[in-house]
């Protein structure tokens, strides 16, 4: 039923970085299972306008082996916080056009509330600590973007000792 494999899609892992276009089915099919009563999915797409400024396209870069490890860590954190949760995450790198999918997340759980909460948790953690960067290409220039959350200073969001050890 879910046997089709798209280009760049790994057979053996739930957390990966790709240069190929993302389809939400790629993460969905990795977590759907009989014990699940809910699969919550999140798709992050390339936005054209930010505070009135027009984006032409984005360039994403990752420290690939570490980024995949950190995505796996997020999966373990979710499994520890929400009972019987399974997670899959894919993030694309390279040049992305407006409305392209940059990230797709799927979390399956027995009941819907946990799936909603856990998928939100996953995207927030990605923005905190997974080594992936985006470069904005505007009509009038370019910039590597950092610290998107901007609620606390970056220095105060260093990973905890526990996170370092669990990594």
């Amino acid at each position: 039923m879910h046997s089709f494999v798209w280009k760049g899609e790994p057979m053996d892992k739930n957390f990966w970085i790709t240069t190929e276009p993302i389809r939400i089915e790629q993460v969905y099919k990795k977590v759907v299972r009989p014990q699940a009563g809910a699969v919550s999915t999140f798709i992050g797409t390339v936005r054209e306008f930010t505070k009135g400024k027009r984006t032409l396209y984005l360039q994403y870069q990752a420290y690939v082996p570490m980024a995949e490890k950190k995505l796996e860590q997020i999966g373990r954190e979710i499994a520890a916080k929400w009972e019987n949760a399974e997670t899959a995450i894919v993030h694309r790198i390279g040049r992305l056009e407006i409305s392209d999918i940059a990230v797709a997340i799927a979390v399956s759980t027995p009941h819907r509330n946990d799936a909603f909460e856990a998928s939100r948790y996953a995207i927030e953690r990605i923005k905190e600590m997974v080594p992936i960067w985006k470069k904005e290409h505007w009509e009038d220039g370019t910039k590597w973007i950092g610290d998107q959350k901007e609620q606390v200073s970056y220095a105060k969001r260093l990973p905890s000792k526990e996170q370092m050890e669990n990594g």
Partner: peptide, 22 residues
């Protein structure tokens, strides 16, 4: 991720990670 006081050994790989924006 590591702290600033970690000691470096031969063959280690260090990556400087600017603020992330995935």
């Amino acid at each position: 991720y590591t702290a600033d006081d970690a000691l470096l050994a031969d063959g280690d790989t260090v990556a400087f990670i600017p603020p992330v924006s995935g």
